[in-house]
Simulated scan of single mutants.
Amino acid sequence: MRLWTPHPKYLDRQGLTGGWREALLAQAVLAGRTKGYQHHPQLERFRAHPDPHRAVGAYLTGLADEATARGYRFDRSRIDHPGTDAVEPVPVTAGQRDYEWEHLRAKLAARSPEWLARWEDVAVPDVHPLFTVRPGPLEGWERPLG
């Protein structure tokens, strides 16, 4: 499961659709509708939020908004708490943002180099509208690759 910190505009088609499925799974876990993935580290930042259900709903809304902008049809009725109004932002460290940006760039280089080329000049990416960046290293819940 990867609930990307970088803005959904950077995700290629596979990343956006996969992110949607994974965020729906995260929503189901947080709502207690599935037993799998309950201890997945990606969920820690949502569980730490004052209203985890609204936070994951805002995350899904951000993905759906990007999908709509690209002409895709994500079923918004699947979002338990749609919208972003009055949802407190989720803090994320600059180190986490930067780690995920490099991780995403590596995935895009292998899977969608033409999509990656669109973002070649982006050194510091925008983040998903739910997140707000603060100084700091990689988040403690992250499990770095390699």
Rank of each mutant, 00 (worst) to 15 (best):
V92H: 05
A69C: 02
E142V: 15
D126C: 01
K107P: 00
R70I: 06
M1C: 05
L43N: 01
F131L: 01
Q38V: 12
G71L: 12
R70E: 13
V90S: 14
W101L: 08
R78S: 09
A48F: 09
A55W: 09
P129F: 00
H128W: 01
V92E: 04
W101C: 09
P52W: 06
D80N: 06
R13V: 14
G95V: 00
M1G: 00
R105C: 12
L138R: 07
Q96W: 01
T61V: 13
R54V: 07
R2N: 11
G19F: 02
L104G: 04
E44P: 00
R73N: 08
G32C: 11
P137H: 07
E44V: 11
A86C: 06
R2Q: 10
P52M: 02
P129R: 06
R78W: 06
E88K: 14
V92Y: 01
V90H: 06
P135Q: 12
P6K: 03
P113A: 05
P144Q: 06
P144N: 08
R111C: 01
G136R: 05
G62N: 11
P41T: 14
F74Y: 04
E142A: 13
A26K: 00
D121A: 15
L3C: 01
E88A: 15
W4S: 15
R78A: 14
L16K: 12
P129C: 01
K35H: 11
P6M: 10
Q27L: 13
R54C: 12
I79G: 10
Q96C: 04
H128C: 01
E100K: 04
A106Q: 14
D85G: 04
P137F: 08
I79W: 00
L63S: 05
R134Q: 14
E22I: 01
R2V: 08
E142M: 13
W119V: 07
W101H: 10
T93K: 03
V124R: 15
A123N: 04
R54Q: 15
P135K: 09
A110W: 02
H81T: 13
P113C: 09
L145N: 09
L130C: 02
E88W: 05
A31K: 11
L104N: 03
V56I: 15
A106S: 13
D12Q: 08
E114C: 03
V56D: 04
E102N: 14
R134T: 15
E44K: 11
V90E: 01
G136M: 10
L116V: 09
T132G: 04
P125A: 10
P82S: 05
R45T: 05
A28I: 03
R134H: 13
A67E: 08
E142T: 11
D98L: 11
L60E: 07
H7L: 04
G57D: 09
Y37H: 15
R70V: 11
P89E: 05
A28T: 07
T61G: 12
P144D: 03
F131N: 05
P91A: 10
P144S: 10
I79C: 04
T61Y: 02
T5K: 06
A28P: 05
E88I: 09
L30H: 10
A106G: 07
Q27D: 11
H49G: 12
L116I: 06
R21F: 05
L25Q: 13
Q14R: 15
P50S: 10
D98N: 12
W115N: 11
V122I: 15
Y37M: 14
R118E: 13
D51V: 00
V87G: 04
G19C: 08
D98F: 02
V124P: 03
P135Y: 03
